[in-house]
Design a protein around this nucleic acid. Structure first.
Lengths: 220, 220
DNA sequence: TCCTTTCCGTTGGAAATCCAACCGCAAAAA
DNA sequence: TTTTTGCGGTTGGATTTCCAACGGAAAGGA
């Protein structure tokens, strides 16, 4: 497991810890290390899980499958990223999504009881705090998304999204991490409707944009 | 503060603790007790807060105000309920909503550093675990809401909502805690559109309902 | 260079929702 | 009892989005 120490320290769960503190903490937390072949299923939708996954090598994806068999990629998890964090302490809840290894992947699984034990160590506090921060920021992110999706009209979704992004990034003009299709997916609308709304708003002088760089104009 | 002990023990943060353990834990966590007059503002949208509120007496409301001055009630917080839990450990983030006391209200405010100190006590572990559970379940709840709001058509929103509710409640027929208007607000559609979709689906044999009691029919 | 691919804006008809209004029923109030 | 109020279903025109398709511009590959 030693060779993954740099990756582990890079994760949001272990950030701001030193490599000297890590072995003792891992001895307490006792994560299970598992390796999966490319394409292998890690978690199946419908299972009840209460563990947190830390990807040490390879790449895994969160997949939503509907009864018709369509596969939709919800998220891609790279080394040092986490998954399942909301299920660790929520009690046994059924997963609405599946998790697949897209390449050969090594994952560390943490269990709720053992992970809490690290709080007895002075440096363990840091881990608990990191975990609380991860969950809090996840809630705020989802809250933001709900605020966007609650808007009935495409133009309003765009404005709510760009305004919160501008506040978060503290820049104007601002760059967003999506192309048009991805932005439309995030806002929950068709790409054509998004493009149409954007050109209407540019016409109306509300904003300006080129590609993924947007400028919000003040006043209404 | 003693007279609020039963309320505090009833909160999700302190649940499954005994009244004997409480005084020592509160001495460490050092919450600030504040009392507000009816109508008084507790937090103003735009402020940066990093504390958790526990309502001990009275009632407070989460309010969303738009530039035009319309007030929208996001949530009503009764004694033993919490607010601000997602802001405690998220770093200083600006509030998108305001919090008002609707009646004379007494609130305990916990700060992030002091609250973490309770983890040194054996019973303090329970509090940390409760907090992790609160944040996790909040994320799952928001996830569910995003799944609903992401549906483009009213009928699909209804189906996603009822199916997850049926799974959660483990009952069919199931009762929901909303009337039509509240259900429409939750799903992000007009009440008329919801009523129309519901009667279409009843016509099609997908489900049955009277008032707020719904029966899902299997097969498609 | 040419060809292929990707991205983005546009368009038009079909479909769905919004919005305001009206109605009937049932529970609550007088 | 009668009256009032709240809730839920329905309706129709205006508005908006969806959906599929097309075309141009830019980037990448052969």
């Amino acid at each position: 497991m030693d060779k993954f120490y740099p990756i582990i320290l890079n994760s949001r769960l272990f950030q701001s810890l030193s490599i000297q503190e890590l072995p003792d903490l891992l001895k307490i937390a006792q994560p299970q290390q598992r390796t999966y072949a490319a394409g292998q299923r890690i978690w199946q939708a419908g299972e009840q899980v209460t563990s947190l996954g830390l990807v040490c090598a390879g790449r895994v994806q969160i997949i939503k499958e509907n009864p018709q068999g369509d596969r939709m990629i919800i998220a891609t998890i790279d080394p040092a990223d986490l998954f399942g964090e909301a299920y660790l302490y929520a009690g046994a809840k059924t997963l609405p999504v599946s998790v697949d290894a897209v390449s050969e992947a090594t994952v560390l699984f943490f269990e709720p009881e053992a992970l809490l034990e690290v709080a007895w160590m002075p440096e363990g506090k840091r881990i608990i705090r990191n975990l609380l921060q991860i969950l809090s920021q996840k809630s705020l992110l989802l809250n933001k998304k709900v605020a966007i999706l609650s808007q009935r009209k495409t133009a309003d979704k765009v404005l709510v999204y760009l305004k919160t992004e501008a506040k978060r990034q503290q820049t104007n003009p601002l760059k967003i991490p999506y192309n048009r299709q991805e932005m439309a997916d995030y806002l929950g609308v068709e790409r054509s409707a998004l493009s149409a709304a954007l050109s209407d708003m540019k016409q109306a002088g509300l904003l300006d944009y080129h590609k993924n760089e947007f400028t919000l104009h003040p006043f209404q």
